[in-house]
């Protein structure tokens, strides 16, 4: 039996159009109302924009729980718009999953193209999660300490093991730096956001679905939401699975 809307947690998810985004939307469907942010590619789940239908099914179409917001975070003004739309649609934000990211690799020398992409990748992978978190705090969380604690409101940043260790000959210098920055921001936000009762953690998976199944990354994110920890960077690697 599905929960009523009041019983469900409200999740703001970025990067919803990718593989992890779709997996999260699918897994969270029964217990979360999801504000799914994507640039152009929609998550493969029912939303106000698209509903998957079986042409031979006699059952009526379901009312979608996922609310898609199209936004390009290279435009900084989209941050506030995304928070506003989520609050207008669902009235609250219980979980922010910063999943949008860019993965651009290459050698530093010669590395003209990589350097040209550096600021954009740092922006999307580290600064956009920071801006979303801070804007959500300013617009909704900062004056709701007791409610935030009661509802265990929190942020999960999707980082990478590349931000924790060196993978040689992968050309990941700037990607790794951006994820390391996200890890550091996670720890600092955890400290600062504790003032108003919002937890902040990160998952740092190895490559998925190649090395780590996407379902494991989903599982770890949902564990963080269900738990009570803050300031943790949870490594999700093939070794850790054993």
């Amino acid at each position: 039996m599905s929960n009523s809307a009041d019983d469900m947690r409200v999740c703001l998810l970025t990067g919803a159009g990718g593989g992890l985004g779709t997996a999260l939307c699918t897994e969270m469907d029964r217990r979360y109302l999801i504000s799914a942010v994507c640039r152009s590619k929609l998550p493969r789940v029912d939303s106000q924009e698209v509903v998957f239908v079986d042409p031979l099914s006699q059952e009526p179409k379901r009312v979608p729980k996922t609310f898609v917001i199209k936004a390009d975070f290279e435009d900084e003004s989209q941050i506030e718009r995304v928070i506003e739309l989520t609050l207008a649609r669902f009235g609250r934000i219980d979980l922010l999953i910063n999943n949008a990211g860019q993965y651009i690799t290459g050698p530093l020398v010669p590395g003209k193209e990589l350097l040209e992409d550096a600021s954009r990748m740092m922006e999307i992978n580290a600064l956009v999660p920071l801006r979303l978190a801070v804007t959500a705090a300013r617009m909704f969380w900062k004056e709701r300490r007791a409610e935030n604690i009661k509802l265990s409101r929190n942020i999960v940043n999707v980082s990478s093991t590349a931000g924790l260790k060196l993978y040689e000959n992968q050309g990941q210098s700037l990607y790794a730096a951006s994820k390391a920055a996200l890890n550091t921001l996670t720890v600092h936000m955890s400290h600062e956001f504790s003032r108003f009762g919002v937890r902040v953690n990160a998952v740092a998976p190895n490559s998925f679905p190649g090395i780590v199944p996407t379902s494991r990354v989903v599982e770890e994110i949902l564990k963080l939401d269900a738990g009570s920890m803050s300031g943790e960077i949870v490594r999700v690697d093939a070794d850790a699975a054993k």
């Binding site: 698209v50 509903v51 239908v53 031979l56």
Partner: peptide, 9 residues
Amino acid sequence: ERDWLFRSK
């Protein structure tokens, strides 16, 4: 394919 897409826009 039984996953047809119903779009609104």
